[in-house]
Design a protein around this nucleic acid. Structure first.
Lengths: 202, 202
DNA sequence: CTTGTTTAAGAATGATCGTTCTTCTACATC
DNA sequence: GATGTAGAAGAACGATCATTCTTAAACAAG
């Protein structure tokens, strides 16, 4: 009779996710993963098939257990710019509590490490960016209202602008331990969005 | 009598730099570097000491041969926002000519791959970010003029905002082959800077 | 031409990588 | 209690890593 694997599989995934996130796909070794997860090599291979498959599963797990709760304020129905503000503020608070030199975003970290040829991984990264863009578009559309100052193409541009800016924020968060710089960036970004939606830009 | 090594050394560095830039520090192997540079293993070790030293030399070379000419419009004396605009426009044109899926920024790529412990490399990355920030501060200060709408702390914040945004731009440029998205980001960023310096934000 | 020295090239090395395989334990079933 | 089986653990494997060492070629000096 097969034992209930779901619990340990999820725990394994969480540990692997954290290792990939902090150390990076290429730098982390299977030996490290065995040590970090407490699961034997054979167990990892039996459950996932290999390092790359474990990483892909970790990327999916990242979406479920990290992005979904963190991004919930943005994806909540009826939210506006305040949802984006809450999202950023929460993550910056987490950064401060961790004492700086954060892990950044697993997706942003990964896209600087994979070759152009790895289309399967790229698709997962693109899907993440699309999810962020969709969320921001949702919030900005609500904020704009039915007869707001911005047209739909302008909102699309602003949503992509927000997504790319957030990637820059998490990227730089790996280098600095100064939360005030990140807070200032977040504040300016929010101010830009508000300004745009007041129609006072251009 | 020692032969003039400077020429081949620089050529070696350029090839190594391109390999590190495109493939990444951990993924590229010494075998790859031997093939890419056309220099034997012993030659590389004799001239640089090892992989990490070659990488550090490549980071310095990146500053000299890539950042300095590309960033010149921003660092030019007397430049304003138009200098930032020229800088971004030039690099986006290069991206379009290359057909998308760019290499991003070597510094941005690296900072998602090095461990927290590698302070020597981190210092080089931080110096690059500081250089960008200083350049943007210089251009924004000029644009602001002696009695502009912004105070010096506000200009500092805006310079750091620009630097982090640019990191996000190059980060995302590794994932997309759609230059119009990057152009739209650049246009919005420039519009934000102009708006701020008109004093119409907040 | 011979000899001494420098330079480059690639074979050898120890370590470590991802992956596989064998072994041993523990439990269910009769 | 004996037997069969599923599961986990880590030893073993070939490949590849960064690095070093040996060797051969090329040039300068006598």
């Amino acid at each position: 009779m097969p034992r209930a694997k779901s619990q340990s599989r999820e725990s394994l995934l969480d540990n692997a996710l954290n290792a990939f996130w902090k150390i990076g796909y290429h730098v982390i070794s299977m030996g490290d993963l065995v040590r970090e997860t407490g699961v034997s090599r054979a167990g990892i291979y039996a459950d996932f098939g290999g390092k790359q498959d474990l990483f892909h599963a970790s990327l999916d797990r990242y979406q479920e257990t990290v992005v979904t709760p963190a991004f919930a304020p943005v994806e909540a129905s009826g939210t506006g710019i305040d949802g984006i503000e809450t999202y950023l503020c929460n993550l910056l608070t987490r950064f401060e509590l961790a004492g700086g030199f954060g892990r950044g975003c697993l997706v942003g970290n990964t896209l600087t490490q994979i070759p152009e040829i790895d289309v399967e991984t790229r698709a997962k990264l693109q899907a993440h960016c699309d999810r962020l863009t969709d969320g921001f578009r949702h919030a900005l559309t609500n904020e704009n209202g039915p007869r707001g100052p911005l047209t739909q193409p302008e909102i699309d541009d602003l949503a992509r602008y927000t997504m790319i800016s957030v990637q820059g924020l998490w990227s730089y968060s790996r280098l600095t331990n100064d939360a005030t710089v990140l807070r200032a960036y977040s504040d300016t970004l929010i101010a830009v969005l508000k300004s745009r939606l007041r129609g006072s830009l251009q």
